[in-house]
Structures are given as C-alpha cells and as structure tokens.
Design a protein around this nucleic acid. Structure first.
Lengths: 96, 96
DNA sequence: AGAGTTCTTATCGTTATCGGTAAAACGACA
DNA sequence: TGTCGTTTTACCGATAACGATAAGAACTCT
C-alpha cells in the first residue's frame, strides 16, 4: 500500500459515494441527517480528503441503501486479480 | 445503523480477517510486518474492539492478497438485499 | 447585482485510532 | 510445573476523525 494508492482509494470511494448520492438526488445536508454524519465530514470523505472509519462508511452505505462492498467496488481489473481466495503460496522468503 | 449493528459489523470483519490470516498460516507478528500495522492494533481489529480506518483495512486486504470487499463480504442474505443498484424510490416522507 | 442553493474550507473541542513498548493471559506440549 | 509461541491488554504520545459552527466559493436563477 503506497501513499499514492491510499489517496487513490480514498478518492475512488468518495467519488462512488457522491455518484450514488447524486443518483438519489440527495444533498449533503440530507445525507448528513440520514447518517448522523455532519455535512462537512461527508464533504471531506467524498472529496477523498478524509480517511473514514469502517462504521462511518457503513452508516453511509446504509443510508444510501447499498452494501459496503459497492462502495469499495474494486472492479478495476488490476494485474489479473482473482478478488477472492488466493491463500496458497505466499513465499515470504527470509523477510519474516 | 444501530450501535449493536456497528459492533456486529466490527466483529464480523475482524473474524473474517482472522480467518483469512489463519488460512495463510500467518501470525499477528508477520501480518504486522506485512502491513506496517502493529500487532496489538491488528489484535484489536480482529477482535472487533477497534473501528479501523479505510486505509488500514486496505493495507490488511493487500497483505492478505484479497480485495477489500472480501473483508466486508455481506453475503449474509439479509431481507432480500440486492447488494447493488437500488437507487429508486426512497420515500423520505417529511423527514427531511 | 442580489438572492438562493449547494458545496467547500477553516477552526475548535472531544474522542479515537495507531505505533511502540511492555506486561499479562492463553495455549500446547514435554 | 515449567517454557515456548501466540495473543491480549494496558499504558503512552502523536496524529486524525468527527460534530458543531461559521465563513467562504461556486453556480444558477431573476
């Protein structure tokens, strides 16, 4: 996890939240009341400037009536990511 | 989002992390070195006692080589959750 | 230009995460 | 009963999230 990846992750999740909120024609104030999260905090999250906690994201997902994984949605076809079950191997060399 | 649901969410995510870590035969110390997160912090997260930030969960997911949504994995068939795209309707009444 | 709506940014105070370290608890196994 | 490996818990200090509030941008109307 590089620092650029972290920024990109936060930006992506924020963008996704904003898109879903727009689909439902909610403004920040309304989503704030639905979630109990202040509008400024939501703004920071949507613009990728804040590293929200898990329960915060869960509140947003619940208010938007989508699952948490929809917000994470890593359907970016990275270098052949299997997205699930890759427990074998993992040769750590003498790193550990 | 009730406070019980939040606790359950943290416990579930923690349990899932622990399960995946066990599959790969990693101990907390090894995962700590892979993620840069201290072993005590990982322990708190896995036992559902800490509300981790998004980038923290992302580091764990990366180290375990699974996608973030695998950690969230809300495949618990709740009351017919569609898990995606439910933007219509949403009658907020005069609540807003 | 002025008013209205929405979003952004800033500041303050409270609380929580997080890494580090160290100590305690829990195993298993001889 | 011991020790070893692992995990949990407890403290510390630094950083950051979060709510509240208020001020600033941006954008659209008339």
């Amino acid at each position: 996890m590089s620092i650029e990846n972290e920024r990109k992750l936060l930006a992506d999740v924020g963008r996704r939240i904003r898109a879903i909120r727009a689909e439902q024609s909610l403004n920040l104030d309304q989503l704030a009341r639905l979630t109990g999260i202040s509008a400024p905090a939501l703004s920071l999250i949507e613009t990728g400037k804040r590293d929200a906690r898990l329960t915060t994201l869960a509140k947003i997902a619940a208010a938007l009536r989508v699952s948490l994984s929809v917000l994470m949605d890593d359907t970016s076809p990275g270098p052949d990511a299997k997205t699930k079950d890759a427990p074998q191997g993992y040769d750590l060399g003498d790193y550990l």
